[in-house]
Each structure stands twice: as C-alpha cells, then as structure tokens.
Amino acid sequence: MKYLMYARSEFIRGFRYRANYWATVISAVALAVIQWYLWHAAYTDKDLIAGLSLDQVLAYTLIGRVAAGFLTAPTAALRIGSRVRTGAIVHDMVKPVDLHTQLLWQGLGRAGFSFVATGLPLLLAMAALGVLEIPSPGRLLLFLISLLMAYVTMFSTSFLSGVFTFYTKTAVGVDYVYTVVSLLSGEFLPLEFFPAWLRTAADYLPFKSMHYIPMAIWSGIAGPGEVVPSLISQCLWTLGMVAVSKMAWSGALKSLTVQGG
C-alpha cells in the first residue's frame, strides 16, 4: 500500500539524526520531572483536588509526557499555506495521492518514530522506577486505539489550520493560538480542574479528543462506565474532523491559482 510506504520512510528517516537524540530524551525527562514535582507540591495539604487523587493526576500528566512526542503537530500540515504561496503545491497535486492522506501517513511515521525513540524509553523507565503504573491489558488496548484517534484528530486540526491560512492569506493560523487548543485539549491539566463554564466549552469542542480522552483512559480518570461512551464520541469527532479537513482542502483546490510556469 503506497501510503504505508510514506509512513515507513518517515519512520526510518528519524533514525538518521542520532546526534540530537540524547538531547531530545533529556528534554522529555526534564518535562516529566517538572510535572512530578509540580503535582506533589499542589497536593501538599490535600488528598483530593477536583475529585482526583494525586496518583490519578500523576498518571494522567506523566503518560501525557510520554505521548507528547507522538502527539506533536507535524509542521508539514501547517505549511500548506506557504506551499500555495510559493507554488510548490503543484508538486503535491501532480502526484496520484490525496494530500491529506499522504501527510497523515507521513506524520504517523514520524510520530511512530518519536514514540519508539523517546516515549517508550521514558515510559519503561518510569514504570521500572514505580512512578507510573501500566494499566490492565484491556485498558492498555483501548488507550492505544484512543491515542491513534487522538493523533488523527490532532493532525486534521493542524491540516485544517493550514488550509485556513491559505484562505486568509496570512501567516497567522491556529498554531499561533495553539496554547488555547492545548489547554482545552487537557494537555496542561485534566479537564476536571476547569471551572464549570470552561468544562462545558471543552466538552462541546473536538480538542478533548486530542489529549484528554486517551490519558483519562490510561489513568483511570475515565471510570469503567465512561470509557466506551468517550471512545464513541472521540471516534465521531475524528471522522468529523477528517471529513471537514478533506472538504476544506478540495474546496481550496477549486479556487487555487498558481502563478508562473
């Protein structure tokens, strides 16, 4: 399958930059260390905050650090606007592949590399130290499925923002307000901490499919009865975001003018 080849080549490409590897690992460890100390300090005189225990929040944020490399938006998706401006987009259009699908698989290849190279060692180290507990096989499987859907939703959101900059013809896209998306996705802290109005907003937006749902499944914040409904809503959002980004792109193609020859 041709798309699989895209993923494979990006996965292999990751191994070429070994000099930087250790620096990347140290960064990932450092961010996990900060989270560990921060939450211990927040729980100094409390057993429960927003109904969550320290162990649950630590599991949630630490597995979030493990998945962070995997869930990083690929810059390729964000640069569609500039590829349109420079005309480089014609090289993408002459290929007999769908651009969204191609970039998605390339992104998955790169994300897969990042997961294997930095996420997995961090996970194993934390599990060995007893800092992070690995859930039951069933929950683990559901977590992986959810994580994959999180990637597709995150990717499609970035892709959509790339297409959006093509319409607006400015450099300012969603990536400039990405912290707001991160906050609403639950990347900084679990949605349980939000004031009611913000929680409601986050529940109605697609962003929680990008982070909160898989991490809540891993950490047990999502109780047994909540796992399946949240996976279903995540699945719907994922399909929805894919459909919207493909539609936006084909709409953009119709009005595309490439200058020069």
């Binding site: 921060l38 300090a41 927040a42 100094t44 005189d45 409390k46 905050i49 927003a50 400015t170 450099a171 300012v172 400039y176 307000v177 990405y178 912290t179 707001v180 998306v181 991160s182 906050l183 900084f188 802290l189 901490f193 939000f194 004031p195 913000l198």
Partner: peptide
C-alpha cells in the same frame, strides 16, 4: 495581528496556572 495572537498564546499557558488555582490555594 501576529502579536495579538501572541498575547492569546501566552495567556493560554498562564490560564493553566489560573485554572489550577481555581481548585487549590497554594503550590
């Protein structure tokens, strides 16, 4: 425009601290 977006970007991460303090009184 870029820097107005930059204010939103910075406030997004500050908001995480503010949200945390809506539930606790001290770090």
């Amino acid at each position: 425009m870029m820097n107005v977006a930059g204010i939103v970007y910075a406030l997004g991460s500050v908001a995480a601290v503010w949200v945390l303090f809506s539930k606790i009184h001290a770090i």
